[in-house]
């Protein structure tokens, strides 16, 4: 993932991750009941998994298992998958298609009239909040350990930002995401959740 070249990264964006959709492993069927059989998400039961990387999905399952992420459904559900059983499930959902988005690059605009877009593309450094897209990628399409925000359910993004604030979601290196989430206001959380959800 890290040695990806510019060309292949662009290629990845413009087509599904794998040419042939993977067959659903039996162990992924249980996940599909809440996340949808192709991981497109079923609001409010489960967020979209399609568009997330294997690395990220694997890591989140482990965080649920160790209690660093807490959720009444996922805490027990994550226990079903142990050891080598995690990867095929993560691969399956990571291989699912997501709608193409035309990404907005930093610098395409110099001035944002919408404060939410300003936060997303420029951050608010008076509060030491970097632009969301620095880690989550242009338009929040995500990559590697950084989850895709583009097209994710607004209710889920909101719940997660609140969970970071409440300390029921952890596991980020040096509390980088937690410390950013802690600086966001309730209104900003609502607006950011809506903004990213609408990137489709």
């Amino acid at each position: 993932m890290r040695s990806i070249t510019l060309g292949s990264a662009l290629l990845l964006l413009s087509m599904p991750l794998l040419a042939e959709p993977m067959a659903m492993p039996p162990s992924a069927q249980l996940c599909g009941t809440c996340h949808g059989p192709t991981g497109q998400g079923v609001e409010p039961l489960g967020p979209r998994l399609a568009g997330l990387s294997t690395e990220y999905i694997t890591q989140q399952i482990k965080l649920f298992q160790t209690g660093q992420r807490q959720n009444v459904s996922m805490t027990p559900m994550s226990m079903v998958l142990q050891g080598d059983a995690i990867k095929p499930v993560a691969d399956y959902f990571a291989s699912q298609e997501v709608p193409e988005v035309t990404v907005h690059l930093r610098g395409e605009a110099a001035v944002y009239s919408d404060p939410t877009q300003e936060l997303v593309y420029q951050g608010d450094w008076d509060r030491m909040i970097p632009a969301c897209v620095t880690c989550h990628g242009p338009s929040g399409v995500g990559g590697g350990q950084f989850p895709r925000l583009a097209g994710q359910q607004a209710s889920y993004i909101k719940t997660q930002l609140l969970a970071w604030q409440a300390g029921t979601r952890k596991g980020d290196v040096d509390a980088m995401m937690g410390s950013i989430a802690n600086k966001l206001t309730a209104d900003e959380i609502d607006a950011l959740a809506k903004y990213f959800a609408e990137i489709k």
Partner: peptide
């Protein structure tokens, strides 16, 4: 490997 991370062709890391 210190080579950063590109997303959509952009190495913001």
């Amino acid at each position: 490997d210190g080579q950063g991370l590109a997303i959509a062709g952009v190495y913001s890391l």
